[in-house]
Design a protein around this nucleic acid. Structure first.
Lengths: 157, 157
DNA sequence: CCCCCATTGACAACACGTTGTCAATTCGAC
DNA sequence: GTCGAATTGACAACGTGTTGTCAATGGGGG
């Protein structure tokens, strides 16, 4: 009963998953960009700043948490510091890997997005149903985990 | 019983959805890039070429089908033509909007990806279960549709 | 204590998606 | 048939993610 190889439909399923992921990414990116702009942020900067709202992290720590490359986070973080929205604090545990943390101005910028964020979240939950939204996120998380575990484990950077 | 405004948790749900979408996008992108490279393609070029495997389309038609901007597709399409993997054919219905179609070489490049594509698809379906994979894609599609319908409908380009 | 090696930051080159703008073409209203 | 709006292609500027490379730091084995 075991399929010998590539079951028919599996490729189409993978292609569909990837294409849908690309489309969804584009949509969320557009929405985030639109919400972040009035606060003087971009989607990427909001994302990076959002990662350290509760506790400062090193740049590579943020990269690991977000599943992005260290360099991408580094550049965005440097820009945020240049904007005065974040700062590097000395790291007692590592002189080279400084701690990245938002400034008061940075926190204010993130707070300014709150209302639009909440309004869109409400409309989304209304339109799709909070349970389905929650279930979808969970399913996407499982999918991401599996894909992550499948890309030859040891090819990082 | 109707929540007056922004139910607590809705914002976190939206943030989680967006962050997971970003992560998933990154994973699929990395996998696609790795599969496309040996065939002389990139993820984006594979995607555009894949859109016209069955029938030629205009550049803006591809953009609509993929949910991308016209200009992004245009540049990738021009690069593919420059690579000799696709060509513009005269469009009897529109002298300006030429028809974008793969060349024989372009078809060969896409075919060359087939094995790796099938192998990964099989491993993914094995690991997650074909039904769950299918269900997840469907849920993501619904989510993308809803988000699309929510970003003020009339702000296109 | 010293050396190897993983981690980390810095910098550069490249691919790609987005917005913005302009001219050419097409199509529908009149 | 003509005019105006919409579509389309071209081009440029920008933000962002990626890979690749290098030097500095830190930790663990000898």
């Amino acid at each position: 009963m075991a399929e010998p190889h590539t079951a028919p439909g599996a490729q189409e399923l993978l292609s569909g998953a990837a294409l849908t992921s690309f489309r969804l990414n584009g949509r969320f990116l557009a929405v985030a960009e639109a919400m972040a702009r009035p606060a003087g942020l971009t989607a990427a900067r909001w994302q990076v700043l959002g990662a350290v709202l509760h506790e400062p992290l090193t740049v590579s720590g943020i990269a690991r948490a977000m599943g992005m490359t260290r360099q991408a986070v580094q550049r965005t973080a440097d820009l945020l510091v240049g904007q005065g929205l974040a700062e590097y604090r000395p790291n007692p545990a590592h002189s080279r890997a400084k701690l990245f943390a938002p400034t008061e101005e940075g926190l204010a910028a993130v707070r300014r997005i709150g209302p639009a964020h909440g309004e869109f979240a409400t409309r989304l939950a209304d339109a799709l149903g909070p349970e389905e939204l929650s279930r979808t996120v969970e399913a996407m998380r499982r999918l991401a985990d599996v894909v992550e575990s499948l890309e030859e484990p040891g090819s990082g950077e």
